[in-house]
Design a protein around this nucleic acid. Sequence first.
DNA 1: TGACTGATGCAACTTAGTTGCATTATGATG
DNA 2: CATCATAATGCAACTAAGTTGCATCAGTCA
Lengths: 136, 136
Amino acid sequence: MDKLTKKFRSRGHRITQSRLAITDILSRTDKPLTVSEIRRSLSQRKVTVDKVTVYRELTFLVREGIAGEVDFGEGAKRFESADRDHHHVVCVNCRRVEDVVLRHDIAAEERRIAQKKGFTITHHALEFFGLCASCR
Amino acid sequence: MDKLTKKFRSRGHRITQSRLAITDILSRTDKPLTVSEIRRSLSQRKVTVDKVTVYRELTFLVREGIAGEVDFGEGAKRFESADRDHHHVVCVNCRRVEDVVLRHDIAAEERRIAQKKGFTITHHALEFFGLCASCR
DNA sequence: TGACTGATGCAACTTAGTTGCATTATGATG
DNA sequence: CATCATAATGCAACTAAGTTGCATCAGTCA
C-alpha cells in the first residue's frame, strides 16, 4: 500500500476512482490545470466524473496539501501537484507556462512585512507574465 | 482643464459622468475594489451606471494606464489607481488590505528569468496573504 | 448648432463555482 | 463474508462574474 493511500485511509478518507484519476492527472501535467482542462482529461481517460465532484475533490486535495492552487487572473483557478516550491512565468499569448524557482528568499521579505504590518503571513502568490520565445 | 481631461480629449475620449465617478472612486479608496463594490459606491453617490458600463470603463482605464488590476484569487478582479508601484498584504479573514513596498528588486529577478527562460517579461503579480493583528 | 462617433443601457448569454439532497459504494468491524 | 457507518457522488438548481450584439444617447469638434 503506497504512502498516499496510507495517509488517506488513516484519516478516514477513501480511495476512489475520481480521486485516483485526478491526482494522477495533476501529477503528470507540467502546468497547472483549470477545472475544465481536468474534466477534458478525465473524459479522455473515459472516467466519468461530475463537475461538482471535481470541484470537491480539488478542494479536498488542496486542504490535504496534495494539490496547490494558482491563479493567473484568467477567471478560473488552476491546480497542480503541491510537491515543489516554485512560481510560474506565463506567456500571455499562447498560455505556455514554465516553472520558476526564485533566487531571492521571499520568506525574508515576508518576515519583514509581517513585522512592519503586524500581520501573520501564511502564504503568497507570485507569477510572472510576458511573451515566450516563439510568441515574441 | 486638468491633465487627465487633456489626455482623454487628445485621444478622442470623452469625459462622462461614469468616467469621472469611477476614476474618483478609485482615487479615493485605499484598497482595490471589485466591480460590485464600485457599483455599490456608485449608487451611494446616486450615479446610475449599468454594470456593463462599469466593466467597459475599467477595461478602458486599465488600457490607458490609469487603473491597475489585481487578483486576490477571490473569483472577482479588483481595481485600483495605478499611480503607485506596490503590492498588497491581504487578511484572509476580514479582507483588510495594506499596501506593501518591496525592499527587494523584483525587476532584477525578472531579468534573470527572462534571460534563462527566453521570455520577455511584461509584468508580474505578487500578493501576500495571512491574518491581520486584530484577526489573529 | 449639427454631425460624427465614443459611450451607454438593455437583454440575453456564457462560464465559474456553489448548495441541498437523495443515492452509491469504500472499507472498517464483527 | 456480510453488515453498516459515512465518505463520496451525481443531479438539479442556483448565484455571481464577465461578455456580446445592437439600438440609442450624448460629448466634442468644426
